[in-house]
């Protein structure tokens, strides 16, 4: 009985892991498939589809997505740290309510935020900002609560005694912020910023309302193309963008992100 159960347990895990990895494996296989129809198991392989990635059709949306994600990560990083600083470090009156307000966009589905923003811009007659400016604003609204929360958690968790010690040794507030507070919260803030970059880069539900012809982000270009063709170029685009995301994570990790945070210090 126990043995049967153990076998079933391992079988279940194997099946679930197969389920999880199957579509990824299929996409990688399809991106190397020589035939233009995506069939099962390519017996020969080619990298010709990756050559197509440099065509304007994919390069333009990619560059726009990178630009938007970078700006969004920057803005939400700065604003999130400032807000967390005010609420957690300065403990301004009403901080609990203010924090709830800052995090409130999290409880609204993205597609609803998207509709709301596009209706608002149309009503006030600002359709002209659709495209890059609207995308940046909407992605900041999406990313800011996450960054604020991560920065606030870092600020709340760091050892206040260090700050107090510095103060009693005569450090000015500016010196303490620069040499103690900021370095201590750096890992948390960096992971927040990385997260902001990724959710902006991969975003669909907000972007789908705000792009306009000639101003399209990569995921939107991909889903528009997928509506009528499944050819292997798509697979190549998808694999390349996944590799790009992994590279971004690796880069931020090198600058001093997540693992430093796991080990509880900045250095």
């Amino acid at each position: 009985m126990n043995r049967v159960l153990t076998c079933l347990f391992w079988l279940a895990i194997a099946l679930v892991l197969t389920f999880i990895t199957l579509p990824l494996a299929v996409v990688v296989a399809a991106s190397l498939s020589p035939s233009s129809a995506v069939t099962f198991l390519p017996w020969e392989w080619t990298t010709v589809w990756y050559g197509d990635l440099l065509a304007d059709r994919w390069l333009q949306p990619f560059l726009l997505s990178v630009k938007i994600a970078t700006v969004v990560a920057g803005i939400s990083g700065v604003l999130g740290v400032l807000a967390a600083y005010a609420v957690v470090y300065e403990r301004i009156p009403g901080s609990t309510a203010i924090m709830a307000g800052l995090l409130s966009p999290l409880s609204v589905p993205q597609i609803v935020k998207g509709v709301a923003i596009v209706l608002f811009l149309s009503i006030i007659g600002l359709q002209s900002v659709l495209g890059t400016p609207a995308l940046i604003a909407a992605h900041v609204v999406l990313a800011l609560p996450f960054v604020t929360r991560m920065a606030a958690t870092s600020l709340a968790n760091f050892d206040g005694n260090l700050d107090r010690a510095a103060q009693s040794l005569g450090a000015t507030k500016r010196q303490r912020l620069q040499h103690i507070v900021l370095p201590m919260i750096k890992p948390g803030v960096l992971s927040g910023v990385t997260f902001a970059f990724i959710i902006s880069f991969n975003n669909i539900p907000l972007s789908v309302f705000l792009v306009r012809p000639g101003d399209t982000t990569l995921p939107i270009a991909v889903i528009n193309y997928l509506e009528y063709s499944l050819d292997p170029v798509m697979a190549a685009v998808n694999v390349a963008s996944m590799i790009f995301i992994l590279a971004v994570i690796f880069l931020f990790e090198k600058i001093g992100g997540f693992s430093a945070q796991l080990h509880g210090g900045s250095k």
């Binding site: 199957l22 579509p23 991969n202 991909v222 996944m242």
Partner: peptide
């Protein structure tokens, strides 16, 4: 990390 589009595309192919 792969993003929703890549995975959905994988299921489309399958």
């Amino acid at each position: 990390l792969a993003g929703v589009v890549l995975r959905t595309y994988g299921w489309l192919i399958i």
